[in-house]
Nucleic acid binder design. Structure first.
Lengths: 155, 155
DNA sequence: TATTGTTATACTCTATAACTATA
DNA sequence: TATAGTTATAGAGTATAACAATA
């Protein structure tokens, strides 16, 4: 026992939570990435669809909608655009003519590579205040959380 | 020199970028937090306004709009709701009667504490796969990036 | 009758523009 | 005339519901 009272424990601050920091940073970073993507004529969801295809997700539109957790009608318009710019092929499954099967074209893979290059360029800006080992630890930890959350990976 | 060719360097994957991982995780986590906030009758932007006030941002509505990077008209409706539930006081500045000065009430501070508790409870779920030191390193690194990006802190 | 994709419609969030009160 | 706040309106993004084709 001692005579002095402990300092009052401060309540946990919202701004200290991982949830708050991930949410706010995610939104700032997404806004900047969205801006960069505009020069390719794409929105983040177009990239999401290409990533899903590239990650080996089942390629029918309905399955892609489930994978991406968006409405099937949204996949229609995303695929319409990607098909129009030649980034995906869309062919009726001969075994079940209700299904539209999507596949990245060569041009689509090249476009996705450009999206990746933009992201890595933005990475350098966003993480400029970090040392190399900190940046890699962050990347790795975010990867662990992403896998937990069921987000696409290529590992 | 050696005789074997190096394995082909794989292009940097989009899914490996910090930008992609922050963006996707941020959106998943925000969706879950939004769901939790619904039981308090709040949206994330209401919490953002309370955080700004609690962080000592200049309290006029127009300045808050600039701080939060949202339209002034949005601050009106956020403040309307928070005032209605007794979380903020809204008084005309006697020195300049055009200005509405917002301040958290006691009830508002208690409500903000509940929002913080929800966030930290969700933190435990989201980061369950991490060890303690990894979780703290993540929190700290995200804090560094947040400060760089001009997001609110209480440190 | 059930399922895939598409189209039509509606809803949520937020911004822009027009307006009021005060300076 | 300029500024703070408010109200009215519009746009982006996405979901839900109705519909067509195929199973």
């Amino acid at each position: 026992m001692n005579d002095v009272n402990p300092p009052p424990a401060q309540p946990p601050l919202l701004t200290d939570s991982v949830v708050f920091r991930l949410g706010t940073l995610g939104s700032v970073v997404t806004a900047r990435y969205t801006e960069a993507l505009a020069e390719l004529g794409l929105k983040p969801k177009h990239v999401g669809l290409m990533v899903a295809l590239d990650s080996g997700a089942p390629p029918s539109q309905l399955e892609l909608a489930r994978t991406m957790a968006v409405a099937p009608s949204l996949v229609v318009s995303l695929a319409d655009h990607l098909e129009q710019i030649g980034a995906v092929d869309r062919v009726r499954d001969p075994a079940d003519r209700r299904r539209q099967v999507l596949a990245l074209t060569g041009a689509g893979r090249a476009l996705l590579a450009e999206c990746a290059a933009l992201a890595h360029r933005l990475d350098a800006e966003v993480t400029a205040a970090l040392g190399d080992s900190e940046r890699e630890a962050l990347r790795r930890t975010l990867g662990v959380l992403g896998v937990q959350a069921g987000l696409p990976t290529r590992d």
